[in-house]
Design a protein around this nucleic acid. Sequence first.
DNA 1: ACAAAAGTGTTTCCTTTACACCCATGT
DNA 2: ACATGGGTGTAAAGGAAACACTTTTGT
Lengths: 245, 245
Amino acid sequence: MVNGEEQQQSICNALAEFKVGVDNAIFSVDVAENRVLVLLLKRQGEPDLGQWSLPGTLVRRGESLEDAAYRVLSEKISVQNLYLEQLYTFGGPARDPRESPQSFGVRYLSVSYFALVQHEEVQLLAESAETMAWFPCDRVPKLAFDHNEMVKYGYQRLRNKLEYSPVAFEVLPETFTLNEVYQLYTAVLGENFADYSNFRSRILKLGVLCDTGMKLSRGAGRPASLYRFDSEAFAPLKDKPMIFI
Amino acid sequence: MVNGEEQQQSICNALAEFKVGVDNAIFSVDVAENRVLVLLLKRQGEPDLGQWSLPGTLVRRGESLEDAAYRVLSEKISVQNLYLEQLYTFGGPARDPRESPQSFGVRYLSVSYFALVQHEEVQLLAESAETMAWFPCDRVPKLAFDHNEMVKYGYQRLRNKLEYSPVAFEVLPETFTLNEVYQLYTAVLGENFADYSNFRSRILKLGVLCDTGMKLSRGAGRPASLYRFDSEAFAPLKDKPMIFI
DNA sequence: ACAAAAGTGTTTCCTTTACACCCATGT
DNA sequence: ACATGGGTGTAAAGGAAACACTTTTGT
């Protein structure tokens, strides 16, 4: 096997050597402020020292890409519920300044991951607000490497996911009110996709939410029914085309 | 910079070294036979010699991932119009048998690409039917590595793309009849998504097709109008949510 | 004249949209 | 009692599904 590789090397010695990293575009929705946030980190080392960037790491031996993504995540934040999926892979030459011509063709490839967490639940670990902070998606500064592209890509994915998948419920608490769901949707998709009344009927008609019977009172006003996502009811609908709102 | 790297290595010597490959899931639609095909290649070397697989290659120095994808494509087939986009990245440890424990942790990561070509137009280059062939998507044999997963993923992408993007027109000739479009859609999505009459009205109402005024006669029957995809009319609709059928 | 392929129209049904209204609770 | 947030209902508009029908060609 090692022989086979040496042979291949000699036939075609132009193969690139890669270091592989993962970068996480971690989003959360601040329903109170009605905005979508992305977690940024100030770079502590070269290259691009001092610039804001996505939390990332290089992949270790024996570690899968997803494992690496989870590792960075757990190093930076503490959170109960989260949704994670692969986003896009950036691997062009010269995307990382470390790829100098002198470095014998070592390339830096990055597999970006999309993550969604519940804003209220997240705890930022260790670092100060100076070095790690939530930025509104429409006010993201110039980032290191090609991370701006990753954020843009991820934000788009978030909007799509919300429309045709039940991601929202991955990041909502076990039980929630329909208003909480509605606020999450409006924060992400804007206020012009449906009014509350119609949102209600549509999402209930899907048949994937069930009323727990419990009520939640918030000061004045009628108490809201608490619902639960019924993953059993959703299972047969998985893989089928369906629209959440 | 070389110093920086050595330093990093010593601090964390568990980083994985990667070879990066691209694998292409190349699809075409045989409208005559009403089926979707994927291009497979019999492996000529170890590992998995003799097994069917997707056409792929390792990425060379100075070559972008997309460049590599185009290179494999042009090595295997000759085609005028094609659509290509990144699909998914597979990078788990032990996904390639070459990743033996003795190989000092060298990992094989693969970025898969999705391609769509016009079946009638494609010319298979060089190799015989024994070593390269179109397989119906529902009759794909056991493939090398994790290529079955790639095909599955790509086939799903094809169906989604057809529904909410104008990919179809990337792979149709400059001018085409509405029936040709319809047949492409039915072959991919099945016959139960709309009848021809309704398909017609819907796709014309989008306003992205324009009648060239030319007619195409095919033996008996009324000649069909030849249409052209109007990319200018589509431009403002890009990025907006829209449904092609 | 008739078959074959292309294109048009119509009727029915269902979903979406906009909006008005009723219900339960705290102060 | 009334303000506040939660929940229900309905009428009008729009779009999808099914299917009948007309038009234009070749033989």
